[in-house]
Amino acid sequence: MKRFSTPAILTLFAGMALAAPQQPMDESQYVGSQICEECHRQGYRKFGATKMARVFFEAPRSALESKGCEACHGPGREHVQKARERDRARELGVPYEGPKSSEFIKQLGKDSPMPARAQNAQCLQCHQKGQRLFWKGSTHEARGIACVTCHQVHQKVEPFQIASRFKEPLSDNRMFVKPSQMEVCFQCHQMRRAQLQRSSHMPFREGKVTCTSCHNPHGTPNPKLLTEATTNETCYKCHAERRGPFLWEHPPVMEDCLNCHEAHGSSHPQLLKATAPRLCQRCHVNTRHPSTPQLATTRFVFNRGCTNCHSQIHGSNHPSGLRFHR
């Protein structure tokens, strides 16, 4: 099969490379987390209960992690100086006209003056690997989504503090801005919330599957941010029996489960996009019964329609199974 020109692609990639030196860490600008605690006692205490704080404060694995609060918010020396100048002015009862101390620290969150990419850069100092390997250039990154749009860092939401309308698989990773992971996604993907309520659904509502069972919102090289290379490979994680190879294959099934199914929920049985026989008749227009409209009261329509007989529609390994009856 003819391919796109590999040299052209490599040239394109290489042409985009621009050089810029990395800034070294200036130790003199760091004050230590204990200084932060003096003013930000409540935030410090909440953060202290998180897993990240336990690693930073008790088992740092790198120079950056050992910086504690300043690992994310940047060196705090100037910030502290300005805050103290302001406090001193207050004590003396004179107006403080200097710059705000907040201008000298990296604020993260919705009210931050920093653009999303700059905020994310703080998180990516440590979190570039794992699920974030393909974050840069991903759908969410390109649309200016910040890590803190979905995650909160300062407060661990204990599972038992959650009162969510959507159950989720058990997890000890709940650093979300909403009570559940699905509700985080529903902030923007509102239609999906409705689809999960439909009559035919996977066990989303029952807490057996969640958005990240299939998608990695941090970016993947795959379509639709899927965790696996294709839709079918994602479905095979739970439906391994359907992956074949089969002697008689149904080509649209082999190419894409979503040709017939709507994974997020459907009003039709088996998550189908439409009911049989009309779904099958979108392609099967040859002769005899597939080409006939069929009355609602016939065996071609009631119950499961075409699959009353063609039950092995996902593939058959029977020598007489070419029409998926066997």
């Binding site: 985009m16 490379a17 050089a19 029996e241 092995q312 029977h318 199974g321």
Partner: peptide
């Protein structure tokens, strides 16, 4: 009727990322 046959699937995966510069 033949029910779903036994099957096996294996995959290797190699992924890498490199920052050519701070911006790329």
């Amino acid at each position: 009727i033949d029910l779903y046959p036994d099957n096996a699937a294996h995959a290797l995966s190699f992924a890498g990322a490199y920052n050519l510069a701070e911006s790329t």
